[in-house]
């Protein structure tokens, strides 16, 4: 018979009474809640409660000054006959469909250039990121007025070549384009994310491709893009949601009217007009919920379609 030496129990193996364990976990919960409290209070007080209030108000006639009265789905039905609702939806859709792909293309293109290991990369990165910080500010929107105005920089440059420009912001056929340019210009944020993604791509794949004689274009199409699809997807979702919510630029550039002739009447601007100019808070709430629904559907659509074009390193595909 051999004797098995008795190993002293480690603390992890020491049986802990259930009550003591629960107490210890409770203490941890308490601390965790304490740290989460500011965010939770913020979430409930300034997001969740106002959202629920807005949902209720969307079924009421509410002019802010007197108590809301329940009107059922009337506000939602009203949208069908509201020509400005459709105008704002069209403007916003065009803005999203044109500016998001352009912005992502610029961001990716520049990230590829910066990924080549340029000297002074941090400076370039910061410089290109700067418009993202400023792009949605009032100051830049005011600057845009100066650049695209009748006597602005663009027309002065065109004048140098003998071309007479227009007031780009006062022409209904060009006003939205200038705001799209402004949005594309703020490509710094997706660019930084692309750059981080490019840094993660394994070099050995490129070496193998080069050995096989793949051109730069082929390497980009067959290695860079497929491996970067999760990052592209992430940026696509973020920028799409952000573009649906664009407000400041149109508000400043058009003086809050969405003009000329509603050509810059972004959906959010229309919500603002209904809420704060017309005091039609019930209708504005309904408009806001429709926007939320549209963004949710489009985001869900993106996720559904992503299985066909987004490749994750750990998937079996």
């Amino acid at each position: 018979m051999t004797l098995t030496p008795i190993r002293p129990a480690t603390p992890a193996e020491t049986p802990v009474p259930r009550r003591a364990r629960r107490r210890a976990l409770g203490r941890q919960d308490g601390v965790a809640h304490l740290f989460m409290a500011p965010w939770l209070v913020g979430l409930v007080a300034i997001t969740l409660i106002p959202m629920l209030a807005s949902l209720y108000l969307s079924f009421t006639d509410y002019n802010i000054l007197s108590a809301p009265t329940f009107v059922g789905a009337e506000n939602y039905e009203r949208m069908l006959d509201d020509s400005r609702f459709w105008a704002s939806a069209r403007v916003t859709l065009v803005y999203v469909l044109v500016s998001v792909p352009l912005q992502l293309a610029f961001a990716l293109g520049l990230a590829l250039v910066l990924d080549k290991g340029l000297r002074g990369l941090p400076v370039y990165r910061s410089a290109y990121y700067l418009p993202s910080l400023l792009g949605t500010s009032v100051a830049v929107a005011v600057l845009w007025r100066q650049i695209f105005g009748h006597d602005g920089l663009v027309n002065q440059a065109l004048g140098f070549f003998g071309i007479e420009g227009t007031n780009w912001l006062q022409n209904p056929s060009t006003a939205l384009s200038t705001l799209i340019v402004l949005n594309v210009w703020t490509f710094g944020s997706p660019m930084v994310i692309f750059l981080a993604g490019l840094r993660q791509l394994p070099e050995e794949l490129y070496e193998a491709a080069r050995v096989d004689g793949a051109s730069v274009v082929r390497q980009f199409a067959s290695i860079t893009v497929p491996l970067l699809t999760p990052i592209i997807f992430f940026n696509l979702i973020l920028q799409t949601i952000g573009s649906f919510q664009a407000f400041t630029q149109a508000h400043v550039v058009s003086g809050g009217t969405g003009g000329p002739v509603d050509s810059t009447l972004f959906y959010t601007l229309y919500i603002y007009q209904q809420a704060f100019v017309n005091f039609d808070m019930g209708y504005a709430s309904a408009l806001a919920w429709v926007l939320l629904g549209v963004i949710a559907v489009i985001t869900a659509g993106h996720f559904l379609l992503s299985r066909y074009w987004v490749f994750y390193g750990d998937s079996d595909d």
Binding site: N171, P172, T257, G259, V261, V277
Partner: peptide
């Protein structure tokens, strides 16, 4: 009451006329 945006409407209507819409 209900006409607080009439100036904005006026401006938009004038825009429509001046651009020929």
């Amino acid at each position: 009451p209900g006409t607080s945006a009439w100036r904005t409407t006026f401006t938009r209507v004038l825009e429509e006329v001046t651009v020929g819409q």
